[in-house]
Amino acid sequence: MTLRHEHRHYRTALLGLPAEPALRQVLDRQGRPQPLPHDGLMLTRFLAEQLGLELGDTIEVEVMEGRRQRLSLPLAAMVDEPIGVGAYLPLPRLNALLGEGPTLSGAWLLVDSRERDALNDALQAMPRVAAIGVLADAERGIREYMDETVLTFAMIFVALAGSIAFGVVYNNARIAFAERARELATLRVLGYTRGEVSRILLGEIALLTLAAIPLGWLIGAGFALLLNQAFSNDLFRIPLVLTPTRSALPPSASSPPRAS
């Protein structure tokens, strides 16, 4: 089906679900099941934003098979799904709009892993079964994609950030030492030990570094948010989660994790 709003359009599947689905639930980012509205469409928020929709707006639905009806439905609810994009209607409502009886085009099955191969062979032998999908394989593919892309980029960014931070601190230390060489030499003449003079110079650098860390966290969080939005697409959206370990602090020294 093709969803249209003003000059924007998006082609996707319109899923009809029972009132209380057991296996294929509509979940938000926190994994909480969301009820379907009695009348009107529920869209993934990412898809609604791509179409420029707000709650209450009318969506034109073009059915791409069968009698190819054109339906006008209101946007009744949005859900923050982290995986994929979707449009949902209660199954009886969808059947009524399409003028069909209680028909089904697909089903989700909870399968015993020991019987999976036998079940796949039996389904493959059925002429009316068009395709079989295994959620475990899809999850494995997404995780492999993240390992190959997101984690690789993260390692590159950490290496670059570490080298830049080391260079900045080292250069500041050399500049501070060059500017205060006469004062430090005077302190040595007055009887200060080498260790005491070093603590004065290094203490100043340490204070400046500690003062810069909170600002660095703030800039890093903003950059992480921008990077998170840049990686968001119709395949998946990775929630931004700020935890104590991401800030290089022990759990007791920072607030509890929070997802946004």
Score class of each variant (00 low, 15 high):
71 L>Q: 05
117 D>G: 05
49 E>Y: 01
170 Y>M: 06
120 N>T: 08
216 G>C: 07
191 G>M: 07
260 S>T: 12
59 I>M: 11
97 L>C: 05
66 G>R: 04
1 M>E: 04
58 T>C: 02
232 S>W: 03
34 Q>S: 09
168 V>R: 05
192 Y>G: 01
146 M>R: 14
105 S>P: 00
156 I>G: 03
36 L>T: 02
103 T>K: 07
93 R>D: 06
252 S>I: 03
178 A>D: 14
171 N>Y: 08
102 P>R: 12
118 A>T: 11
226 L>D: 06
140 R>C: 03
29 R>P: 01
208 L>H: 10
148 E>M: 06
174 R>M: 13
22 A>D: 13
113 S>Y: 01
135 L>D: 13
53 L>I: 04
158 V>W: 06
36 L>F: 08
233 N>F: 03
3 L>K: 02
239 P>Q: 00
101 G>K: 10
74 P>L: 00
177 F>P: 00
255 S>A: 13
222 G>S: 09
198 S>Q: 11
99 G>M: 04
228 N>A: 14
142 I>L: 15
134 V>L: 12
123 L>T: 05
213 I>E: 00
185 A>C: 07
1 M>H: 07
26 V>R: 02
125 A>Q: 14
168 V>A: 11
92 P>S: 09
15 L>D: 03
36 L>G: 08
164 I>T: 10
242 L>W: 13
236 F>H: 13
5 H>F: 15
46 F>A: 09
20 E>M: 08
92 P>M: 08
103 T>A: 12
63 V>L: 06
71 L>A: 01
239 P>E: 01
64 M>L: 15
218 L>Y: 12
138 A>S: 10
241 V>G: 02
109 L>F: 02
19 A>M: 04
47 L>A: 13
188 R>C: 01
149 T>L: 09
13 A>D: 11
119 L>K: 04
160 L>I: 15
18 P>F: 10
221 A>C: 09
107 A>H: 03
188 R>V: 07
219 I>V: 15
242 L>V: 15
243 T>E: 14
36 L>H: 07
106 G>I: 02
145 Y>L: 15
30 Q>N: 13
58 T>Y: 04
253 A>C: 10
46 F>P: 00
223 F>K: 03
24 R>P: 00
243 T>V: 09
36 L>A: 05
115 E>S: 14
107 A>M: 14
257 P>T: 02
90 P>A: 08
72 S>C: 06
184 L>M: 14
248 A>I: 06
97 L>Y: 06
154 A>I: 04
220 G>C: 08
40 G>R: 02
195 G>V: 08
60 E>P: 01
223 F>Q: 07
169 V>N: 10
60 E>C: 09
